[in-house]
């Protein structure tokens, strides 16, 4: 996974609540067996009409938001299906950070596995950042400081330490967990003793 570096970008603002992963990447694009190439289909049904023409008033179709690295949205972002195609599509489009009042659980976790930083902030901050977007002003995300800098203000956000470390260092968490193989073996040995029906499946 690519290391997460600080970002400066004019954010795109999508002021809708409950954006679900079906909206982020509709099912017709889930038939791929690859992780890449989904950016062009991001928000497909909101971005393109039935003839495939781009819809003018959709934020990500317009300059400068086409090149935004930061997406701001209404609460409960990423609800619904567990499809990791959603963060893959965001990433492929160039989005490295999503800011919302709240995220759905599975989507939130999926972001970290792909080097995307989801930031949770209060409603008033979402609105202020949305205004920056409207004025086409850059905002800056500093991960190690856990800080969003906008205008002459800054806002500290909360983040799980382990998740932060994985992002900053671009860590492969499977490799990390495999370092704990001894613990897994011990656990399985106990399991054979205590619940023999689990490991032999029957």
């Amino acid at each position: 996974m690519e290391k997460f570096k600080n970002i400066k970008s004019i954010p795109a603002y999508l002021p809708l609540i409950n954006i679900d992963t079906d909206m982020i990447i509709p099912k017709q694009f889930l038939k791929t067996i690859k992780r890449s190439g989904l950016g062009k289909s991001l928000f497909y049904e909101m971005r393109f009409d039935e003839q495939g023409n781009s819809i003018k008033n959709f934020v990500l179709n317009n300059d400068p938001y086409k090149n935004s690295k930061i997406l701001i949205s209404g609460k409960n972002f990423g609800c619904g299906s567990s499809r990791e195609h959603a963060p893959w599509a965001l990433l492929d489009f160039g989005i490295r950070c999503v800011i919302s009042q709240s995220f759905a659980d599975i989507f939130y976790n999926n972001c970290f596995k792909n080097g995307i930083l989801p930031i949770i902030v209060q409603e008033n901050i979402v609105k202020e950042l949305g205004e920056c977007s409207g004025r086409k002003e850059n905002i800056e995300i500093k991960l190690s400081e856990q800080e969003i800098i906008y205008g002459n203000k800054s806002h500290k956000f909360k983040l799980d330490l382990f998740k932060k470390k994985c992002l900053i260092e671009g860590l492969d968490d499977i490799a990390l967990s495999l370092e704990k193989t001894k613990h897994i073996e011990t656990f399985e040995n106990k399991l054979t003793q205590n619940k023999p029906w689990i490991l032999n499946n029957g």
Binding site: S82, R83, E84, P87, I106, N109, N110, K113, N114, D173, I174, S177
Partner: peptide, 9 residues
């Protein structure tokens, strides 16, 4: 439910 990276994990 989990994501694909977690499936791999």
């Amino acid at each position: 439910g989990v994501g694909t990276s977690e499936v791999e994990h």
